[in-house]
């Protein structure tokens, strides 16, 4: 019931759908239903069709619907499992589940790897890291010389690329991320621990007993 283009109310969703999504994620049935309230809010902010478009994700994250951002593109692509240009509720739940405080660290590390493996080659390469650092500098209006940028990237690869083949494999990324847990701080959203009490306005609409 989540992937139709019709507007939906959580009450129109079958308990089996909520239960299935709860089963496929770290969330309880009530939490899935509470997250549906958040999803509805996000998915009607620009185009009221019950799907999150990139502009709507951008509006939620940047408070502005327009403007290119490499990281926004990557986050959107990872949420959009079906690669059809929109985020459906089911995809929203699957992706947010990785950000649950109780999700295994390996899942978080894997998600971050896929985020940074821009060209999906199975490796994070220096050109990709350079592109991402350039993007964050642009986003934050910081200016660094090419020389400094090269130094930062070289230092990072000296630390992360343990077999010195010039690229970071998933195994190397795993070891590197475990050594530098601050890199994963964005991968956990404490809000998700108990979304029904963190957002009391959502409770009104939850009616399924866990």
């Amino acid at each position: 019931c989540f992937d139709s283009r019709r507007r939906q109310s959580p009450r129109s969703c079958q308990h089996a759908d909520l239960a299935r999504l709860a089963h496929e994620s770290r969330f309880s049935v009530n939490e899935v239903e509470a997250l549906y309230e958040l999803f509805k809010k996000l998915s009607c902010s620009i185009i009221d069709d019950g799907l999150i478009h990139k502009e709507e994700l951008r509006l939620a994250l940047f408070q502005a619907p327009y403007g290119e951002n490499l990281f926004l593109d990557r986050v959107f692509d990872l949420f959009d499992e079906k690669k059809n240009g929109v985020i459906e509720f089911e995809e929203f739940i699957h992706a947010l589940s990785v950000f649950h405080p109780y999700a295994p660290i390996e899942e978080k590390i894997d998600f971050a790897f896929r985020l940074y493996d821009l060209r999906q080659t199975g490796f994070i390469e220096p050109e990709e890291v350079r592109e991402m650092v350039a993007a964050i500098l642009k986003e934050s209006d910081m200016i660094l010389s090419d020389e400094l940028l090269t130094m930062i990237i070289d230092k990072t690869f000296a630390d992360a690329d343990s077999d010195k083949d010039g690229k970071i494999s998933k195994e190397e990324w795993m070891a590197y991320a475990l050594k530098h847990p601050t890199l994963l701080k964005n991968m956990t959203l404490p809000y998700l621990k108990d979304v029904t009490t963190a957002f009391p306005s959502f409770i009104f609409n939850t009616e399924v007993e866990d």
Binding site: L42, L72, V75, S140, L148, T156, N186, Y191
Partner: peptide, 25 residues
């Protein structure tokens, strides 16, 4: 000091990577 940071620390500062913003009213 950006030079003392690793590249991924810099990258993780992107607002797009802070999904906590989705929950802001």
């Amino acid at each position: 000091q950006p030079t003392s940071m690793n590249a991924f620390e810099l990258i993780s500062m992107s607002r797009a990577l802070d999904l906590g913003n989705l929950f802001e009213e």
